[in-house]
Simulated assay, not measured.
Amino acid sequence: MIRSRSPRRWAATALACLTLGGIATGAAAPAFANGDASALPVDNAFLRASHQGNLAEIAAGQDAQKNATTECVKNVGKVLVRDHTKMDAATKSLADKLGVDLPLAPTAEQQGTLANVMKKAGTSAYDTAWLQAQSAAHEKTLSMIDHQVAHGKNAEVTAAAKSARPVVAMHLDMVRGGTCHGAAADAATTPKSIHAGNGGQVALAADVPVMLAVPALALGGVLVAGGAFWAANRIRRNDGR
């Protein structure tokens, strides 16, 4: 199962991915790995997609804090890291409870989007590209949340989606249309409490940096190495603290 692991086990997983010569980014193990069928396929898919989205937003937010040229974009990046770290803690807790395995890394599309934005690092073009990417990503996330609310079968997963929706909507307001809305960004200073389902568990995870290097787009092994490098960089940062 792909759940929370020690640094050594993360390293072993990353090495195994490279050794085997392939990783299905976004792939997961059987839906009911622990025999708990309380989460149905639509709910499992939501948890997995949420986790990948959170990883992508954390990485994007950290990159913006380093490479954006305006304080507005840097501030939005900080908010994304804070909120998506907490949302991901709730997602992982609920997935663990329901026996749903989570992917190791964001999707290939998410990794590629950030890689393209990073090519413009340190220029005004970076800020514009970053905001446009985040606007599109958060619109997609809201659609995914609304689909879960309308069609989800597991009450806890649906409750988690409802809890996350206003946070994601606030993020969209900050980047809507590819423009940084400073008032919305400045207003987003109060830490959000993200609940894991309807069990009342509040995700109080610290805002731990998870700056993940996105491999350069190249022919051949980019998708093979992407997931492993993503996990390996997390290990190195954890070991360095």
Rank of each mutant, 00 (worst) to 15 (best):
T158L: 05
W130S: 02
K120E: 05
D173C: 12
T91A: 14
L142G: 06
H138L: 05
Y126R: 02
V117E: 01
N116T: 11
M118H: 14
K86F: 14
A89E: 14
A90W: 02
A129V: 02
D101E: 14
N116W: 04
V117W: 00
S143K: 15
Q110A: 05
A137N: 08
T107K: 06
T123C: 09
P103Y: 06
L142V: 15
A115W: 06
P103E: 10
L131M: 08
S135L: 04
P103F: 09
I145N: 02
D96G: 15
A89D: 15
A161I: 09
V157C: 05
T107G: 12
A105T: 15
A129Y: 03
A90K: 07
K140G: 04
T107W: 07
A90Y: 01
Q111Y: 13
R165Y: 08
A129G: 12
G122H: 06
T141H: 09
K162L: 04
L142P: 05
D127N: 03
D101T: 15
A133E: 02
M144E: 08
W130N: 03
Y126M: 04
A115P: 01
M144T: 04
I145Y: 03
A136L: 10
S93D: 13
K120C: 04
G178V: 07
L131K: 01
K86H: 14
M174N: 00
S163H: 10
Q132W: 10
H147G: 09
V100R: 07
D127Y: 00
K162W: 02
E156T: 07
M170P: 05
V175N: 02
V117N: 00
S143C: 05
P166K: 07
H147M: 10
T123D: 13
T158M: 08
V100G: 12
A105L: 13
V157Q: 03
G177L: 11
A89F: 15
K97N: 14
M118K: 11
A161K: 03
L98T: 15
K92V: 15
A155P: 07
G152M: 05
A155N: 13
A125R: 08
N154P: 07
S124T: 04
A164Q: 08
G122C: 05
A155M: 09
T141Y: 04
I145K: 01
K120F: 04
S135M: 03
G112C: 09
I145D: 01
L104Y: 08
Q110K: 00
Q132F: 10
K119A: 08
K140N: 06
H138E: 06
V117L: 00
A159M: 06
S163E: 13
V149E: 05
S143G: 08
A164S: 11
K86W: 09
A150C: 02
R165L: 11
N154L: 07
M118P: 10
T128F: 06
D146Q: 10
